[in-house]
């Protein structure tokens, strides 16, 4: 009886057949692509190899954390690029979180002016492409900064056309000298990322606070807590349950957006990779390295945020 059911009507057989067909199709496409790849690559004399990583790169990077010069090999250039990426990502994460939280909370302020300013900031930033904002900040604002004596200086911070100087700075022969100098490209990229991601994080924070039932505010108020205490002790801890997963998405987006550094000439991973490809023609290897690195960065951020998420969720029980 059971054997006589044709396969296209059999409840247990049909799903497996569909899956097998789909898997076969995908495998066929992938193997066709790979065989094309092998044929085309060997025709171009570019079969997969990693030996070129050890040859001298021959190009310089504006700023690096590691000691790196034009005579050093490609792998060191790519590693320096990765570290540059990580540096700007880490700094931007901190800045954007601070800005986003402040703006997100400002949208609940009693002050109508503050509320509407927060709204205007979010709407202006979210509806403009990041790349254009970055170019605007770099070419219009940062390259338009004064230098020398007329630079913007506060105690410990000097922002000039020559870069951002941190620590006790002194003007020597019209040039600022300070313990830490961050290049203008880094500063512009960092600023653009902070301002852009800050708007999205503000929305995440606002959504999280809004997701807390109004009854919680009322309960806090009826216990006699001041509005600031109700927010900090009652509402925010609950809002975090909604905020943290949203932040995870925004942090990953920020990490990916940092690859726009190439537009202002900051030597991040992608821009080093692009130069490397142009010089070596090693498209496959370079793309694999770049995609793999970003995957690792994403995974690291997700792991961190998942840990945080567990902490926040446990809080409730």
């Amino acid at each position: 009886m059971r054997a006589r059911i044709p396969w296209w009507r059999h409840r247990r057989v049909l799903p497996w057949l569909i899956q097998a067909a789909a898997a076969l199709l995908v495998l066929l496409v992938i193997s066709a692509l790979i065989s094309n790849l092998v044929v085309n690559l060997s025709a171009a004399g570019l079969l997969l190899s990693w030996r070129w990583l050890g040859t001298p790169a021959g190009f310089d990077l504006g700023e690096t954390l590691l000691p790196y010069g034009a005579g050093d090999p490609y792998w060191l250039a790519l590693l320096s690029g990765l570290l540059n990426s990580l540096r700007v990502i880490a700094a931007a994460l901190v800045g954007a979180t601070a800005l986003g939280t402040a703006v997100g909370l400002a949208s609940f302020s009693r002050n109508a002016l503050l509320r509407s300013l927060a709204r205007v900031y979010v709407e202006v930033i979210r509806n403009c492409p990041l790349l254009m904002q970055l170019l605007f900040w770099y070419f219009v604002v940062f390259l338009g900064l004064p230098d020398g004596a007329s630079a913007l200086h506060l105690p410990g911070v000097v922002l000039a056309k020559s870069g951002l100087h941190l620590g006790p700075a002194a003007l020597v022969d019209g040039v600022w000298r300070a313990p830490i100098r961050l290049s203008l490209e880094f500063t512009a990229l960092l600023w653009a990322l902070v301002v852009y991601s800050g708007a999205f994080i503000a929305e995440v924070v606002r959504g999280g606070v809004q997701a807390v039932p109004p009854g919680q505010w009322e309960a806090a108020r009826s216990l006699g807590l001041r509005p600031r205490d109700s927010l900090a002790r009652i509402v925010l801890p609950q809002a975090l349950r909604v905020i943290v997963p949203g932040l995870n998405n925004q942090y990953i987006a920020l990490a990916k957006n940092s690859s726009l550094a190439v537009a202002v000439g900051y030597g991040d991973l992608y821009s080093v990779a692009e130069t490397t490809l142009n010089q070596t023609g090693r498209a496959i290897e370079v793309v694999l390295i770049v995609l793999g690195s970003y995957l690792l960065i994403d995974l690291a951020i997700s792991a961190l945020m998942n840990g945080l998420n567990r902490l926040v969720q446990l809080h409730e029980r």
Partner: peptide, 8 residues
Amino acid sequence: IGDDLRQR
């Protein structure tokens, strides 16, 4: 009611 989708 068996495994035949048409009968279902």
